[in-house]
């Protein structure tokens, strides 16, 4: 067996926690690779980057990135990150979690964090299923797809997550796949630089619990599908980007600069209180 002694992004990973828990063919690790490249590219101060995850396969990302990181409760990572972000105006807070965590149990926190334009970046890896618990249906499982809790096929409507986030007030919204590693890395750079609520949906294969059950082949087959079905439409109206069979709309859909939660708060208070206003700066 070939011994791999080091990797270019080792410094950004908790190598003492390897091997990671992700299955062969899983796209979460690929997205993490893109994330570390984005951090490198931005030459970020690692004392000012904090990663927060919820629960699930993607929820384990916080445990592998070598920055101050928190593995919180199912769905509530964004609420924890809101308190952390408000208290650390000089830091970038990143929430890294899955579709079930962010769009199902955490759906309420997602729409409100987007509405408030909290200064944070959310990376939502959508693998169409709850992997950690054995492949149950999620709000993003495609129509008629099999899951352990839809043994006769999914019959619910699915979320168009970019549209949900854009409609809620997210000021940066993009979607890429783990096949599009360069574009995804570039999007992560843009999202990390973006003041306010930035959101990237990352489509990713779950070969073990989603693809096998649905006889979709190996991870590489979904990567091929991502490649063939990709339609890049930057600036697309998010109402038109729902995932349909044969067409995967990708790109940077929203990128606008609006006051962040902190900026809005400070502006309001300065106007109302004048000299009496003392900004909240956390513990510094």
């Amino acid at each position: 067996m070939t011994e791999i002694k080091s990797h270019p992004v080792d410094g950004l990973l908790r190598t003492d926690r390897m091997p990671h828990i992700w299955c062969p063919g899983c796209g979460v690790g690929t997205s993490v690779n893109c994330f570390t490249r984005a951090i490198e590219k931005l030459e970020m101060d690692l004392d000012k980057l904090h990663v927060v995850s919820g629960i699930g396969c993607t929820g384990r990302v916080a445990g592998y990135i070598n920055v101050d990181s928190f593995h919180t409760t199912h769905g509530r990572a964004l609420a924890f990150a809101t308190g952390l972000s408000l208290s650390r105006p000089d830091s970038k807070v990143v929430v890294y979690s899955g579709d079930g965590d962010i769009a199902a149990i955490g759906g309420n926190h997602l729409i409100h964090a987007a509405r408030r334009n909290v200064d944070m970046t959310v990376i939502c890896v959508n693998n169409y299923t709850y992997g950690m618990t054995g492949g149950q249906v999620t709000p993003t499982t495609p129509d008629k797809a099999l899951a352990s809790t839809t043994p006769f096929g999914n019959f619910e409507h699915t979320f168009n997550i970019p549209n949900l986030v854009a409609a809620s007030g997210g000021t940066y919204v993009a979607r890429w796949t783990v096949f599009h590693v360069r574009q995804l890395t570039r999007a992560m750079v843009s999202a990390l630089k973006h003041p306010g609520f930035s959101f990237i949906e990352v489509l990713s294969p779950c070969p073990t619990l989603y693809m096998r059950r649905n006889k979709l082949g190996a991870a590489v087959n979904l990567m091929e599908y991502f490649k063939e079905s990709a339609v890049i439409e930057n600036g697309a109206d998010t109402r038109t980007v729902a995932l349909n069979e044969g067409k995967t709309v990708l790109g940077e859909f929203v990128n606008v600069r609006l006051p962040t939660l902190r900026e809005s708060y400070e502006e309001r208070m300065k106007e109302a209180l004048g000299e009496k206003f003392v900004p909240y700066e956390g513990s510094k």
Binding site: S85, S87, G282
Partner: peptide
């Protein structure tokens, strides 16, 4: 749910 975890994020900031 959010209120009871949001402040914990602040606490870990110091």
């Amino acid at each position: 749910l959010a209120a009871s975890i949001c402040f914990q994020g602040a606490v870990w900031s110091g």
